[in-house]
């Protein structure tokens, strides 16, 4: 069996921070106290070559800290990390030739220069062959619709354009492993879609592995697997399908009633909202297939209806709610 491309075992990362003084009295209120926080608490996982894995979690869950330890930027306090068979901290320079990293919108782009200057900088640093560089750049520029953009100074670009250029700069040297840290924050919908397509295309062409962190649920639709972190711990590791079915298989149903007459619906499922003759509910797949529900949909009273997936955001809300509940009874610390 092939070795995983990333292997993380019981990794811990702590850092010091400061908290505002509780005192409201002067001068005590002007001072702050030092505390140690644990950003990552004994996390373990592995990723195989060619996988696209989404690392999902709320703000402050430790996702970016994990990426930074995997890329050798941060040094873990405990645990073992192996990336492409190398220790990211000790062999950082060697590893860096084979990885691409996107950290924030304009991260590595020269702010006052056109993006093409950064691309040529990357070409020089990684010694990319002229022909190969031209071919790759042309393909990426076309795929991400950057023809009118990449020769403009970065400071004049929109956030989406900066992110796309940053992405190009990170994969120009054909890295085998690419880390994307919150790549769609503040980015418009067409740019998000273009980035997702570029990720899938790159994986298909080069069998590249992607690890992307995000707190936006829609970003994970391209992922083969999802890891969820919460308060420094891994709370889920599995496919999107498994995540979706975590709290049972549900669908969102929207029913539009005529004449304002809405029958009793609680027996079918959970009512989310009811306004202006339109009812939104959550119904289990089993209940959807029942004869009485089919009869309801077919009734004259129902003018129109729509059935859609419950949505991962809904699943995540339930998951976070469950975790909060556990923390409140002291189960999870």
């Amino acid at each position: 069996m092939e070795e995983p491309i990333i292997s993380v075992k019981n990794v811990v990362k702590k850092y010091k921070t400061f908290e505002h003084s509780d005192s409201k009295r002067f001068p005590a209120s002007l001072f702050r106290k030092k505390i140690m926080k644990t950003a990552v608490k004994g996390v373990s996982f592995s990723i195989r070559r060619g996988e696209i894995v989404a690392l999902l979690g709320r703000n402050g869950s430790g996702k970016s800290t994990i990426i930074k330890m995997l890329t050798g930027i941060l040094y873990p306090n405990k645990g073992n990390i192996s990336v492409m068979g190398l220790n990211p901290w000790d062999d950082r320079a060697k590893l860096a030739y084979n990885i691409g990293v996107v950290l924030g919108a304009h991260g590595q782009l020269y702010w006052n220069l056109p993006a093409i200057d950064t691309f040529e900088f990357i070409k020089s640093v990684y010694r990319i062959d002229d022909g190969e560089y031209d071919k790759r750049l042309k393909r990426l520029i076309e795929m991400l619709s950057l023809e009118k953009v990449y020769k403009k100074p970065v400071r004049t670009m929109s956030l989406g354009e900066q992110m796309k250029c940053n992405f190009v700069a990170s994969i120009l040297h054909s890295p085998k492993l690419i880390f994307l840290d919150e790549p769609t924050i503040g980015v418009d919908l067409p740019s998000k879609n273009a980035l997702k397509e570029a990720v899938l295309d790159t994986r298909e062409r080069y069998n590249s592995t992607f690890l992307l962190t995000t707190h936006i649920v829609e970003d994970i639709e391209i992922a083969d697997r999802v890891l969820i972190m919460d308060k420094g711990k891994k709370v889920f590791d599995g496919s999107r399908k498994k995540l979706n079915g975590m709290f049972g298989n549900y669908r969102r149903v929207e029913l539009a009633f005529g004449n304002g007459k809405i029958p009793e619906l609680k027996s079918y499922g959970r009512i989310i909202s009811s306004k202006g003759g339109v009812v939104r509910m959550e119904v289990s797949v089993r209940a959807l297939k029942e004869k009485r529900f089919i009869n309801l949909l077919a009734s004259r009273n129902v003018l129109d209806y729509r059935v859609s997936e419950a949505g991962l955001s809904h699943v995540l809300s339930k998951l976070y709610g469950k975790l909060e509940g556990k923390r409140q009874v002291g189960e999870d610390e």
Partner: peptide
């Protein structure tokens, strides 16, 4: 913001 510089394949 030092992160983008530390991912290059050279000494820190």
């Amino acid at each position: 913001k030092l992160d983008p510089y530390l991912i290059r394949p050279f000494g820190k």
